[in-house]
Amino acid sequence: MRAFIRGSYPLVPSVLFAVCWAYGVTGLFALTGPPGGPWRPGLGTAVAALTIALDMLLMRIVDDIRDLPYDRVHNPDRPLAAGAVTGSSLLRWYAVIAALLVLLNLFDRWAALVIAVQLAYALLLLLPGPDPGRLVLTLLLSCPVQLLLHLYLYVIHLRTTGGGFDPSFWRALAVVVLATLHLEVAKKITRAPRPGERTYVTTFGLPGTVAVALLSAAGATIVLALTARQTQPLWLALTLLPLALPTLAWWRFRRADRWDARLAGYFLLASFASWAVTAML
Results as ranks from 00 to 15, higher is better:
125 L>S: 13
187 K>N: 07
183 L>N: 10
200 Y>T: 01
171 R>N: 13
200 Y>A: 00
155 V>W: 06
118 Q>C: 08
185 V>D: 08
194 R>T: 00
121 Y>Q: 06
165 F>G: 03
116 A>P: 03
121 Y>D: 08
137 L>F: 12
119 L>F: 08
164 G>H: 11
167 P>E: 11
162 G>H: 02
172 A>V: 11
146 Q>M: 14
157 H>I: 07
177 V>C: 15
161 T>G: 02
189 I>N: 02
153 L>H: 07
201 V>E: 03
142 S>G: 11
165 F>N: 03
130 P>D: 11
154 Y>W: 13
140 L>H: 08
150 H>M: 13
133 G>S: 04
179 A>T: 11
198 R>W: 11
138 T>L: 10
191 R>P: 00
184 E>K: 15
172 A>Y: 11
108 D>C: 04
196 G>N: 03
138 T>F: 05
128 P>K: 14
151 L>D: 05
204 F>I: 07
191 R>E: 03
115 I>T: 09
173 L>K: 09
151 L>A: 15
144 P>G: 10
201 V>C: 02
109 R>Y: 08
137 L>E: 13
137 L>C: 05
152 Y>R: 09
161 T>K: 02
166 D>S: 14
182 H>E: 08
121 Y>A: 04
149 L>D: 06
172 A>I: 10
193 P>M: 05
111 A>W: 03
129 G>R: 15
153 L>I: 13
130 P>C: 06
135 L>P: 01
161 T>W: 02
170 W>R: 09
148 L>E: 05
202 T>R: 13
125 L>R: 14
111 A>N: 03
160 T>W: 01
166 D>F: 10
169 F>P: 02
150 H>G: 07
108 D>T: 07
110 W>D: 01
175 V>N: 12
136 V>T: 12
195 P>W: 06
